[in-house]
Design a protein around this nucleic acid. Structure first.
Lengths: 120, 120
DNA sequence: GTTTAACTCTTGCGACACAAGGTATGTTCA
DNA sequence: TGAACATACCTTGTGTCGCAAGAGTTAAAC
């Protein structure tokens, strides 16, 4: 029913690689990832997405994690990109390039100038 | 299990608008849409996608359809873009522009040169 | 008439983003 | 002290939608 979910569908299959891309610049903890993805825009709305996703990424060996407990701050679980993740990110870059290229091409198709309207 | 499905997820939310874009250049029937989307590349693999989708698009008022029965050919159901569909296609173009821009930006992030490895 | 291809459609499944809700820890401020 | 709040983590259930598989119909081919 809720049709606000248009962009939700677009995110499918993309959020994971985006996290990998983020992590390629350094380790981060969960909430931080949520915030940064939101800052980029249109990329994530909920923690309910990111935690299960991080688990899956870790299961797939694309990220690793370790707890960091300091006296001055809450315990946080930091995620880092693994070599596998780095390689898969590269593969995704190519996939995305091709895919978004195809979509872009199609979206630029010029509507037929004179649409022959069928008579009433 | 099947991991070939990586790009399947990417297609989510995109195939519908792509069909609208196709139809913006003229009416088409189902199988024809399948073929043309496949020709563009990475955009559709199965009729099991397109027919239910066309039903949804019609329910949403974005396309209309009519049967064309001629003596010389099999009966075909032709789909045409409606005004609603044309408007929604325009909206999607903007959504896609923003979304793919965000993803593209993220994917271009440069990995930190010297990854400070945490000591053991 | 039987086969084959073109065209239509349906069913069931799986992946995954998300909202909602739940727990634990630290900080703030009466 | 202790209530209230923010930060941080995680789980459960739901809905969407692309897809494989399969089925029915019509026309052409042999």
């Amino acid at each position: 029913m809720v049709e606000s979910a248009a962009s939700t569908q677009l995110r499918r299959g993309v959020v994971g690689p985006c996290i990998l891309a983020l992590l390629s610049t350094g380790p981060r903890f969960g909430l931080q990832i949520v915030r940064e993805l939101n800052d980029v825009g249109q990329l994530l709305t909920s923690q309910g997405t990111v935690y299960p996703l991080l688990s899956r990424l870790q299961e797939a060996g694309q990220v690793s994690s370790h707890w960091e407990v300091s006296d001055s701050e809450r315990p946080r679980r930091y995620y880092s990109l693994t070599d596998v993740g780095r390689r898969d990110l590269e593969l995704f870059r190519e996939d995305w390039r091709q895919f978004s290229g195809s979509v872009g091409t199609l979206l630029q198709t010029i509507p037929s100038a004179s649409t022959e309207s069928e008579q009433s």
